[in-house]
């Protein structure tokens, strides 16, 4: 699982909704409203950073980041078709 490096799928992007004053992710089938931490997680998904990289990178900036929560969020976004799980070829 650690060799998993998520990235936004083609056609999906982060945005900021000035009406709701919240970060969002926009993709062909819909819109998801994100909180600041979730937006930072999605922003770190570049297809290169693995899940531990992402968690490590965020831990410095957000006090409340827990690895399990990040993994749950990432899995949820994969299930919604927003993120693609990119295999990096590691042993996991």
């Amino acid at each position: 699982m650690s060799a998993w490096a998520p990235r936004l799928r083609r056609g999906a992007r982060l945005g900021f909704d000035t009406v709701r004053r919240t970060p969002v992710v926009l993709f062909p089938e819909g819109v998801l409203v994100l909180n600041a931490t979730a937006a930072a997680v999605v922003g770190a998904c570049d297809g290169v950073a693995t899940v531990p990289d992402i968690v490590g990178g965020l831990a410095g900036r957000y006090a409340d980041v827990r690895g399990d929560d990040v993994l749950t969020l990432l899995r949820g976004l994969v299930a919604r078709g927003v993120l693609r799980p990119e295999e990096t070829g590691g042993t996991g």
Partner: peptide
Amino acid sequence: ARALGVLQ
């Protein structure tokens, strides 16, 4: 529509 909240 955008002012109302439409994003898509």
